[in-house]
Computed example of a mutant assay.
Amino acid sequence: MTWFRIDDGFHGHPKVVELSLEAVGLWALSGSWCAQYLTDGFISARTVRRFGGSSEATSELVSSGLWIETDDGWQFKDWSDYQPMKEEVEAERSAARERMKRVRAAKKGVTSPDVRPNDQGTIGGGSLEVRVAPPDQLPPTSSPSSPKKGGAAKRGTRIPEPFIVTAEMRAWAAEHTALVDVDRSTMKFVNYWRAKTGQAATKLDWPRTWQNWLLSDQEKAEARPKRMTPTERAQQTAAAGRRVGGMQITTLALEET
């Protein structure tokens, strides 16, 4: 999966505020298409027509400076400054395939796996097998410590690739976040931080950041109304019936008197 990145200040950018919603929608759809097919920001006229883009919308995008018109389509302006290029993405995918092979080989007890070009791997947290390795294959984890006097302060890093959920982390999750689907929550965690850019995307301690993410999911789960089981609903209905029945008996007794 390749992400098409849109800055959170896009809505107020001078090139955007005067655009129609049609032009903005066409820009976003086209960016997603370019990211998926690794065109490095080129969108063909045929694809724009398939999206239903009008000549007015494309003219708006060219006039605003977001697109550059070419002979057979349009080119996103400054794509390489904000979006991953084809060469970069393919290199990451190749590295992910190699990691996948090593993980699979380790599970099978093979030290020199046969490297085949058609093996499939993923990036961006799409496969849990890349991120969750057996306990005996896991690297040691450590927590950040305060820098020594006179030493340089420790700097944050981007989320590790792959992000590995250790046996100790799973044990912690079972104790403190019992209502959370650990694998699903971890996948969302990895996808979020892979797509995040800037200084905010670096952390000193990724395991603790992961813990805070799961704790937040646990709080959301606890805040949701509890659903009754079929047995609990049947018991509630029966109890209500007994109360109504009691009122009927009392009424009959008063009438006979």
Rank of each mutant, 00 (worst) to 15 (best):
V132P: 00
A91N: 03
M85T: 13
Q236R: 15
R97C: 08
A171G: 04
E69K: 14
A106R: 12
A223K: 13
D217L: 03
G150Y: 04
N118I: 01
D114F: 09
T58C: 11
A106V: 00
M247I: 11
P160S: 06
Q120D: 02
G9W: 01
R194Q: 09
T2M: 04
T70M: 11
E88I: 03
E60F: 06
A171L: 09
V103C: 07
V165W: 01
Y37E: 10
A253R: 12
D217E: 15
W210D: 03
E98W: 02
K149C: 00
P14H: 10
S32M: 12
Y37F: 14
G246N: 13
A240R: 14
Q137H: 02
K226Y: 02
E88L: 05
K108A: 15
L138Q: 15
I43F: 08
N118Q: 13
E90S: 01
V132G: 01
D217A: 15
R155I: 12
E60N: 07
L29K: 14
W172D: 05
C34F: 02
R102H: 05
Q83I: 07
L128H: 01
E98T: 06
G41Y: 07
L21V: 12
P147H: 00
L179C: 06
T250A: 11
S145K: 14
A153W: 02
P140R: 06
G245T: 05
W79M: 05
V103Y: 02
P14M: 05
T257E: 13
T237Q: 13
K154L: 11
V180P: 02
H13I: 00
S44Y: 03
G151S: 14
L61W: 08
